[in-house]
């Protein structure tokens, strides 16, 4: 058994990735209340903020005439949904450890990278499913980027999901409790998301805040989503700061960084 060939070994690891992915997906389907909750949250945001703030912003300096705050907000909400779904999915490792199932995975004859990859892909798939459901709203909001646009959106969403699930996994493997994770949530993830331009644009904020927004990597993710969704409408001119390829490069580098971080920090042994 020790000398199984390289290709069988590869096949075995791929099957391990698939198995871990499948478990995530089985849980996702089983826990339909969580799915509904995760879908309802962005819809509630969209509804309340969209209606509540629409009159405030309509006709102001921010929005070109004829466009709504909902249209402004939608890309940010989509990004948020992908971000939180993938993050929460990956930190389920903490629960797995708490309830013991993690040991079953750790003692299995599979490599550490397969575990990390399976978990990340599981989280990313869940995030993409939710993102895709939200994308179905686009035509009703007067946003339609075309099929190529949808593919680009998927790519960006996938990269955001990989970034956050990688980050979540790296954190979760070094954290024994949900409390520590709550701290990170409140003091790192929430501010990053608030400053990403999802709620208000870069233009017109104080310069220190503009600086923070510029170094917030999520800004580029939201910018990319906006760019694709608005296409060549006047909204794009007013709100999109960078080219798609520029945003894509940054988001892709982030995803790569998070993946490597997760691989490095996710350790098997207890020392």
């Amino acid at each position: 058994m020790a000398d199984i060939g390289a290709s069988t070994k590869m096949a075995h690891e791929l099957r391990a990735v698939y198995t871990l992915w499948l478990r995530e997906m089985t849980r996702f389907v089983t826990e339909w209340t969580r799915v509904v909750g995760a879908l309802a949250q962005p819809l509630i945001f969209l509804l309340i903020f969209g209606i509540g703030l629409n009159s405030t912003f309509r006709g102001g300096a921010l929005l070109p005439p004829g466009f709504s705050y909902t249209q402004f907000m939608f890309p940010g909400i989509l990004g948020m949904s992908v971000l939180f779904t993938s993050l929460f999915s990956s930190i389920s490792v903490i629960w797995d450890r708490e309830f013991g199932f993690l040991k079953e995975i750790l003692v299995a004859p599979i490599s550490q990278s397969s575990i990390v990859l399976g978990k990340m892909l599981g989280g990313a798939t869940q995030a993409l499913i939710q993102g895709t459901i939200l994308l179905l709203l686009m035509p009703f909001l007067g946003l339609w980027p075309g099929m190529v646009g949808v593919l680009k959106l998927w790519l960006i969403m996938f990269l955001i999901a990989i970034t956050l699930s990688g980050l979540g996994l790296a954190l979760a493997s070094r954290m024994s409790s949900m409390e520590g994770f709550q701290m990170i949530m409140n003091f790192v993830v929430m501010p990053l998301w608030m400053l990403s331009g999802a709620f208000f644009p870069l233009q017109g904020v104080p310069s220190w805040m503009e600086f923070l927004m510029r170094i917030d990597p999520l800004t580029y993710a939201v910018d990319a989503l906006r760019g694709v969704m608005y296409g060549s409408s006047p909204l794009a001119k007013a709100l999109v700061a960078h080219t798609f390829s520029f945003d894509l490069t940054i988001v892709a580098l982030l995803a790569l960084g998070a993946f490597i971080l997760a691989l490095l920090l996710f350790r098997r042994g207890e020392g």
Binding site: T30, E31, F99, G100, F101
Partner: peptide, 12 residues
């Protein structure tokens, strides 16, 4: 191996 503490996924 059967661990001292349960290691099943009890939601499955």
């Amino acid at each position: 191996i059967v661990f001292q503490d349960p290691s099943l996924d009890d939601r499955l």
